[in-house]
Design a protein around this nucleic acid. Structure first.
Lengths: 348, 348
DNA sequence: ACTTCTAACAAAAACGATTTTGCACGTCAA
DNA sequence: TTGACGTGCAAAATCGTTTTTGTTAGAAGT
């Protein structure tokens, strides 16, 4: 039982029961100072028995940090709703929170940002910016404030303030050519791309990968851009554009699941059967994709791994000796579902 | 410009430029102590000019708090995925974060909980538990640890540890009878209910409201429970159950939007036209509802308001003199869409 | 035997606020 | 004219750690 007479167990309580000074306890637990191993171990067991947990505020006061990490979804005038795909963000966020808490830090979420000053009155030791868009003023203000930043997805433009950048990302280029190959294998002759304006690195990568693939395969690129807020409606209209053309594709890859869902609707509206006459695949798996009609083949981005990795990099960046952690590349996969199973269950 | 020679502007810097002691600055800004109004104002303006922002750690150290609020979605063995509706949670979370940050506090999210000890090593001053389920061990452990708790949705069972409970909720009973009336007005003869096992107060309220309404209207209750993880598939199967009965309903109200989306699928699978032969309405609006085929009428719960209100109550609870804030009731509404517009655009 | 070194720990000084206590100086009543 | 009291502010203690600087005792070197 903890010392109930005075509330919480402090370093002094541990020191008292161990018969040493608070200094010694601090050194023993942190591995610093010069102490005999016997004393270290003795103190460690006593601290554990007493259930000692250091006061975070006191520790932070000395270290000059707050113990808080921030996470924001990037946004700008042009692309207000960076959140885009809720499932993706929730999974990333959930994993990031777990990773942060495991290391004794708290993750502060600024879900949809209203003001430019990021976290308001709350000071964070560092921040994760999800899917930075090209002209997000937040990155500049964080850089200017000297806040360590890790982005998931890479920044656009020249490095800000001469500071090396730290990021976590998928290999979207490879993921894109991978899914295109998948579609080709399933019998696609011509593949169209539905995507957004290239304000994020994953969009730029997907477009680059698509063009590269087209060149190799000798296909003319067919790209339709979704306009306005990113939702099924935008995907519907973009897919419409492709399907209404003279030489419509018989497969569509959409760089966001909501766009892919919209493409499904567009096909249905035109009476185009899926997957026999049109195959559709989307990027980022989601509940909606899994339950769509027909279920949607999706590129999985492992958002949990991205979240964990971003937190790890950010903590390294904050605690490190000034060296910047290496960028991390998180593997992707393809979740094959009915929307692209032409060969196996389609024309036959 | 802030005093760049020594990093950040502290209370001493303000005191120095104002020609007073740190004590006086503290008193002036907090409104405590005995100071002339002239001095107070003078110091306030100087502090503002210098951009003084008190060090949170130091302040927390004195107050014995951490400045952190936790938020968790309730879960238990029986109902593992409390998250249920992502849109709802994201909106609630986003608003809650904003409200917390506005009051200088950080909100720590534990998205999907893995362990029973809630926030791990991170101490929170209080916690918001979203949609508490009947047998969630977390509530007990928070109560036992003396952590102030506000729930969104009401707890089940007797009050824990004799402490009065603080909650924020919608009037789900009224919302339910409201949507049932809506359906009746649109021409529904028999209305079925698709819901989950009553582990949350909103489900219990909805069922109670439904039974009450049935009794008043002289209809035999037709309730189908969704089993397993809550998603469109579960809703599909529950709706199937109703539609396959001898006397199938011509309208369905589902207490979660994912269930309602599943009901749409079930109707389509049976070739039942919506809304002419079956009307469907769901609880909690979402992107998916808005873009469903046909667009789904939904009860809106104002999650933003719930989030803000919960944060406000929690801060009152923490800072208050021991008195427990009154429960808050957040208004609901009905967002009418095509899935229930039988009279206006249906049979005709 | 006297310095010098090192191991093992303790005392004291931060960290930056808040809170408690102390101290002048006026004013007012007796 | 003298205590009592109120006003306006400053000094000092406090919160619970970490970090820096001592301090002591024994070993080792000369």
């Amino acid at each position: 039982m903890a010392d109930s007479s005075k509330g919480r167990v402090g370093i002094k309580d541990v020191a008292a029961t161990a018969g040493v000074s608070p200094t010694t306890v601090s050194h023993a637990l942190s591995g610093k100072g010069r102490l005999s191993d016997a004393t270290r171990e003795r103190i460690a067991t006593i601290a554990a028995e007493l259930g000692y947990r250091p006061n975070a505020s006191a520790r932070n006061l000395v270290s000059g940090k707050t113990g808080l990490l921030g996470i924001v979804v990037s946004a700008s005038e042009e692309s207000p709703f960076g959140l885009g795909d809720f499932d993706y963000f929730i999974q990333l966020l959930s994993a990031a929170t777990g990773a942060a808490v495991e290391r004794g830090r708290a993750l502060v979420v600024e879900g949809i940002r209203t003001r430019p000053d990021a976290f308001g009155e709350v000071d964070v030791d560092g921040a994760i910016v999800v899917d930075p868009v090209s002209d997000d003023p937040l990155l500049d203000s964080l850089d200017a404030a000297g806040v360590p930043v890790v982005t998931t997805g890479r920044r656009d433009g020249p490095p800000g303030y001469g500071r090396p950048e730290c990021w976590v990302d998928n290999d979207h280029r490879a993921a894109t050519t991978g899914v295109l190959d998948h579609l080709r294998t399933r019998g696609a002759a011509t593949i169209g791309l539905v995507t957004t304006v290239p304000v994020t690195s994953y969009t730029r990568d997907a477009i680059a990968g698509y063009r590269e693939w087209c060149e190799q395969e000798g296909q003319a690129p067919k790209i339709a851009f979704a306009k306005g807020p990113i939702n099924e409606g935008a995907g519907f209209r973009a897919a419409e554009e492709l399907l209404a053309s003279d030489d419509p594709p018989d497969a569509i890859y959409a760089t966001l699941d909501q766009l892919a869902l919209g493409a499904l609707l567009a096909a249905r509206a035109r009476g185009i059967e899926i997957p026999s006459r049109l195959m559709v695949a989307g990027c980022t798996d989601s509940q909606a994709s899994a339950w769509a009609d027909p279920p949607l083949t999706a590129v999985t981005l492992n958002p949990e791994e991205i979240g964990r990795s971003a937190v790890a990099s950010l903590i390294d960046l904050i605690e490190g000796d000034g060296s910047v952690p290496e960028p991390a590349i998180v593997p992707t996969g393809i979740l094959e579902r009915e929307s692209t199973s032409r060969i196996s269950s389609g024309v036959s």
